[in-house]
Amino acid sequence: MRATFVASEVGNGLRRNLTMTLAVIITVAVSLGLFGASLLVRAQVSTMKDFWYDKVEVSIFLCSKGSDTPSCAGGAVTAAQRDQIKSDLESLRPLVQEIYYESKAEAYERFKEQFRDSPIVDNVTEKALPESFRVKLADPTQYDVVASAFEGRPGIEQVNDQRKVLDKFFQILGGLQLIALLIAILMLIVTVLLIVNTMRVAAFSRRRETSIMRLVGASNFYIQLPFLLEAALAAALGAILAIGALALMKTVIVDGLLAPSFQFTAFVGWDAVLAIAPVMLITGIGLAGLAAFFTLRKYLRV
């Protein structure tokens, strides 16, 4: 194996096919960029899931005086009922991780805090807000266990799961994520087709060299290696551009725009970018290598 000779062949090949090489680099960059972005969005969604599902609670609202649900027919919740509910909740450990009782006074405080700047506060009195148990579950998906145990029980007006709201939200996000991934995969397929075509053109434009190589007994490996390296090199350049774009996205869009404006949620960190970058590089080089390998097997046989 003569490394300098192979290197000069690769250089010649890339230069001779400069426009095609540029086309490959750009397509690889765009498709891998999309692919990386969709992976980043995926990481973002999972970060948000972790963040939010960690915060969701099941709220068990207790009956107040004027509640009109059937289970509140007996009037406001009694102290005995309240104690019973609390001890029943305790018996559900370890599924139930934390139990927190919120009195009417505390509910009112929280309400005032939440709607600090709104005139609505003046119209709401402490009496109008229900007392409640706030329950945090070890596994939020096990909500039904709690709901079935407490829903409709005397003294309980309503059992509320915040997860249901989040589920809707994440379903929509999941859909968007899937669309992004599908577009990325489509682009990757386009990239593979372009590389296949580029290799075909390259093999054709160098058929003189390759036919002489075959004639003098060069091995298949030696004949194909410059083409393979060219494809891999173009793909690697494209992948590096795409990774750069992804880092830029993270800096400008996530850290620069989103994070300061939406402080209530968590955003992906650099660890996610670091994990995605090698995936992009390997995907790019791998796809290009495979596309080139199978094309060359067909067009450059001994």
């Binding site: 060299e209 002489i212 190589m213």
Partner: peptide
């Protein structure tokens, strides 16, 4: 092997054309 149409590489010199046959078999 030798053919009627010579089959030389036009952008390589005489010496390079001959050397090419050796380079591609890893000499």
């Amino acid at each position: 092997t030798v053919f009627q149409d010579f089959r030389l590489l036009p952008n390589k010199t005489v010496a390079e054309n001959v050397a090419f046959a050796l380079e591609v078999i890893g000499k």
